[in-house]
Amino acid sequence: MAMMDLLSAEEIKAAVGAFSAAESFCHKKFFEIVGLKKKSPEDVKKVFHILDKDRSGFIEEDELKFVLQGFTPTGRVLSDKETKTLLAAGDKDGDGKIGIDEFITLVVES
């Protein structure tokens, strides 16, 4: 499954474009612009599985760095600071990674 199967190309382009400048990423605004907030929990789970590149059942810090590229290959790489901020926002149990339930919470509460 591809991201374009779940989200519109226009919304993806707008969301990734809104955060093209370094140190500008805000997950709350990103999830809203890309249309993920209005999706069902099942669709959010599908997005999680796309972002979980190594199929570990978690999105680790090294995968978070490339979260924008998970939506489109032209997305930029997040800075270390942005990556750590996103991880801190999503990692509710403190294990250093974001599980599927944590990801759903991150999207819904954003």
Rank of each mutant, 00 (worst) to 15 (best):
E61C: 08
H27C: 07
G94T: 00
C26H: 14
L78D: 01
V44G: 06
A14D: 15
D91K: 02
K29D: 14
K37N: 07
K29C: 12
L64M: 10
K92I: 09
V108Y: 07
D80K: 13
E11C: 10
V67E: 02
D80Y: 05
E60Q: 11
T72H: 15
M4K: 14
I33V: 15
E11T: 10
F19A: 07
L87S: 02
L68H: 02
K13Q: 14
L106G: 08
G35F: 03
D52I: 00
A22W: 04
K65C: 11
E102F: 02
G90L: 00
E32T: 12
E32C: 11
F48C: 04
L86G: 04
L7Y: 08
A88T: 11
G90N: 02
K13H: 13
D5A: 13
D91H: 01
G90I: 00
H49V: 03
K65E: 12
F66W: 13
G57Q: 04
T83H: 05
R55G: 06
T72R: 12
E11H: 13
S79A: 12
T85N: 11
A21F: 10
G70F: 02
E61A: 07
V47K: 03
A14T: 13
I98Q: 00
G90A: 02
K92C: 07
I98P: 00
S20P: 06
L106Y: 05
A88D: 08
E42Q: 12
K81R: 13
K46W: 03
V67Q: 03
H27N: 05
D95M: 00
F25L: 08
L87T: 02
V77Q: 13
L87R: 00
F25W: 05
K53W: 04
C26K: 15
E82T: 01
I104C: 09
A9D: 10
K84M: 10
D54C: 03
L51K: 02
G94N: 01
K65D: 03
S79F: 09
A22M: 11
D95Y: 00
I50R: 02
Q69K: 15
